[in-house]
Nucleic acid binder design. Structure first.
Lengths: 180, 180
DNA sequence: ATCTAATCGTTAGATATCAAATCTTATGGT
DNA sequence: ACCATAAGATTTGATATCTAACGATTAGAT
C-alpha cells in the first residue's frame, strides 16, 4: 500500500506537470552513472516543457504563440532571403513554417509574394497589422524574459548560454568522422 | 539582393535544423533588452530541439524512443503508485502516457493489471522483454550522456542544473500572489 | 535549344502531445 | 442502502511537428 499525497484543492494552478516528485527520486537505481540526479536530457526536457508552456500561455493572452513570436523575431532581426532560411533561423522545418505563414497570412499579419527576380522564392513581409501584433508580442516577451531571469546574475546567464551551446554541439557532432 | 550560401552537398548530415545562421543575428534590432543575443526561451528551445532529436535518433537505433526511455526510467527508479503519478514523473499528461503504455503493452514490454486493493488503479510492471529492452536503452542513454557531457566539467553541469531549476521555478511562479 | 538536375515551396500522411469528455470504480453523506 | 461526488484511466478531437512526395521554377550540360 503506497501513501500518495494528492494535489491540494487550494493550490493555485493545480498543474500536475513536473510536480509529481513527492518522494526523492533515486535515478542511480536505474542509471548507475548519474549519481542520483536525473540525466541531463531529462532535466533539459523538463525545464523546457515548463518554460515553453508558460511562455506560450503568456503569448496567447495577446493572441500569439511561440512559433509566431520566433517567426516575427527572425523577420525583424535581419532580412531573410527566403522561407528555407527563415525556417532554419526559427528552428523548424520548411513544411512547418508553411503552415504558420499560411495562418499568419490569413490573419492578415504578413504578405507572401513571389520574388520577381527569382519566382521560386516567396518573399515575406509584415503588414501594418503584423507590425502592431509584433509590438504586442514583444512587450509580453520582454516581460517574460525579465520574470525568467529574476534573481539570476548575468554571469550565470552567460554561463548557461555557453553550456547549452556546448551541449548542442556535443549532441550533433558525428563520432564517425571528427578528424578529417 | 541578398547573397545566400547554400548547404554544401559534401556536408555530412546536411540537416538544416538550427544551422541557418550564416550571418550573425542581431536580436537587439528586434529585442532591445537582449544585447544582441537571442532571448533565453529561444536558446533553450533551440538547444533542446537539437539534443532531443539526437537522443531520439540514438534510442531509435535499438527500437526505443525518448518517451519510452523516460517511462522505463521512472518505473525503475522507484515504485510508482499509479499512472497519474507516473505521468507526472515523466512530465507528460495522463492521456499521453496512456498511448505510450498501450503501445508498450502491445509490444510486450509491460503488463497493466488492476490493483486488487483499488480497482481504479492500473499497476504497471515490466515483462522480461521489457527488462531486456530497458537494458538496451540504458546502454544507449549512458553512451549519449557521456557524449553530451564531453569536455564539460562537472561543476558546469551542476551549475547548469541549478540555473535550469531556477528558470523553471521563475517561469511557473504566479506573480499575482507571491506573498501569502 | 532542349533536357536534366537542383532549388523553393506546398501538400499529404504520420506521430506526439494536450484538453475535454467519458467510463469505471471507490468514497462519503444522508 | 442509495446516490452524488471524486479519483484513476481511457477515448476523442484538436494542434504542432516531422518526413516524404509533389509542383513550380531556375540553372546547367550537351
Amino acid at each position: 500500500m503506497v501513501a500518495v499525497t494528492r494535489d491540494a484543492a487550494w493550490a493555485p494552478r493545480s498543474d500536475a506537470r513536473m510536480s509529481g516528485a513527492r518522494h526523492k527520486m533515486r535515478y542511480s537505481r536505474a542509471m548507475p552513472a548519474a549519481g542520483g540526479e536525473p540525466p541531463i536530457p531529462k532535466v533539459l526536457w523538463g525545464t523546457v516543457s515548463v518554460v515553453a508552456r508558460a511562455f506560450d500561455d503568456a503569448l496567447a493572452t495577446v493572441g500569439g504563440s511561440r512559433a509566431m513570436w520566433f517567426i516575427f523575431l527572425s523577420l525583424k532581426a535581419r532580412p531573410v532571403a527566403n522561407q528555407r532560411e527563415l525556417a532554419a533561423e526559427v528552428g523548424i522545418q520548411g513544411a512547418t513554417l508553411t503552415h504558420h505563414l499560411t495562418a499568419m497570412e490569413q490573419a492578415g499579419l504578413i504578405n507572401r509574394r513571389r520574388d520577381p527576380a527569382n519566382r521560386r522564392v516567396h518573399l515575406v513581409e509584415l503588414t501594418p497589422a503584423g507590425e502592431a501584433t509584433f509590438l504586442k508580442l514583444r512587450e509580453v516577451a520582454l516581460a517574460f524574459d525579465r520574470k525568467l531571469r529574476e534573481g539570476i546574475p548575468d554571469d550565470d546567464i552567460r554561463h548557461l548560454r555557453q553550456t547549452l551551446a556546448r551541449l548542442q554541439a556535443n549532441a550533433t557532432d558525428d563520432p564517425a568522422a571528427p578528424t578529417p
